[in-house]
Computed example of a mutant assay.
Amino acid sequence: MRFQLITALSVAATVSATNFFVSDYSGNVTTFSLTANNGTYALAQTFQTTECAPNPSWLTVDINRGLLFCLNEGLETVNGSLSSFTINRDGSLTHVKNETTISGPVNRVIYGNAAGQRAIALAHYTGSAVSSWLLQGEGKFELNQNLPYTLAQPGPNAARQDAPHEHEAITDPTGQYILVPDLGADLVRVFGWDVTTLVLKTLAPLKAAPGSGPRHAAFWNPYAVTGAGSPTYLYLVSELASTVTGYAVTYLPNGGGLNFTEVYKSSTYGLLNQPEGNAPAEVHVTPDNRFLVISNRNNTSFNLPESDGTVVPSDSLTTFRPLNDGTLAWVQIWPSGGLYPRQFSIDGTGSFVAVSNQYSQNVAILSRDVATGLIGEPIARMSVPGNTTCIMWDEWNA
Rank of each mutant, 00 (worst) to 15 (best):
F3Q: 09
F3A: 13
Q4C: 12
Q4F: 15
L9Y: 14
V11R: 13
A13V: 13
T14E: 07
S16I: 08
N19Q: 10
F21Y: 11
D24T: 10
Y25H: 12
T30L: 13
S33Y: 06
S33V: 15
A36Y: 04
N37P: 10
N38L: 03
T40G: 05
L43D: 00
Q45D: 12
Q45Y: 14
T50S: 13
W58L: 15
T60F: 15
I63A: 07
R65G: 01
R65D: 05
R65W: 00
F69L: 03
G74F: 03
G74E: 10
S84D: 04
F85C: 01
I87R: 02
I87F: 06
N88T: 08
T94D: 15
H95L: 02
V96W: 08
E99Q: 08
T100L: 06
T101S: 01
P105L: 05
R108I: 11
I110D: 00
G112S: 00
A119M: 04
A119C: 03
A121E: 01
G137C: 07
F141R: 03
L143W: 00
L143K: 08
Y149R: 04
L151M: 07
R160T: 01
P164I: 05
H165K: 02
T171D: 05
P173I: 02
P173M: 00
Q176V: 05
G184S: 01
G184E: 00
D186L: 08
D186E: 06
L187M: 05
L187T: 04
V190A: 01
D194H: 01
V195W: 01
T196L: 13
T196F: 07
T197K: 04
T197V: 10
L200C: 02
L203G: 06
L203R: 07
P205W: 04
L206E: 07
A209S: 12
P210T: 09
R215V: 05
W220V: 07
Y223F: 15
V225E: 12
G227Q: 00
T232K: 07
L240P: 00
S242V: 04
S242E: 05
G246M: 06
Y247G: 00
G257A: 04
K265M: 10
Y269I: 04
Y269F: 14
G270E: 12
L271T: 12
A281K: 09
A281C: 13
T286D: 09
D288W: 04
V293T: 10
S301H: 11
F302K: 15
N303M: 15
L304H: 09
P305W: 10
S307T: 15
N324G: 11
D325V: 01
G326H: 13
S336I: 12
G337V: 14
G338S: 11
G338Q: 14
S345M: 14
D347R: 03
G348I: 09
G348P: 04
S351D: 12
S351Y: 07
S351F: 09
V355Q: 12
N357C: 14
N357V: 11
Q358F: 04
Y359V: 13
Q361K: 14
V363S: 02
V363T: 02
I365G: 01
S367C: 03
E377A: 10
I379P: 00
V384D: 06
V384S: 05
G386I: 10
N387H: 13
T388L: 11
I391S: 02
M392W: 13
A398L: 07
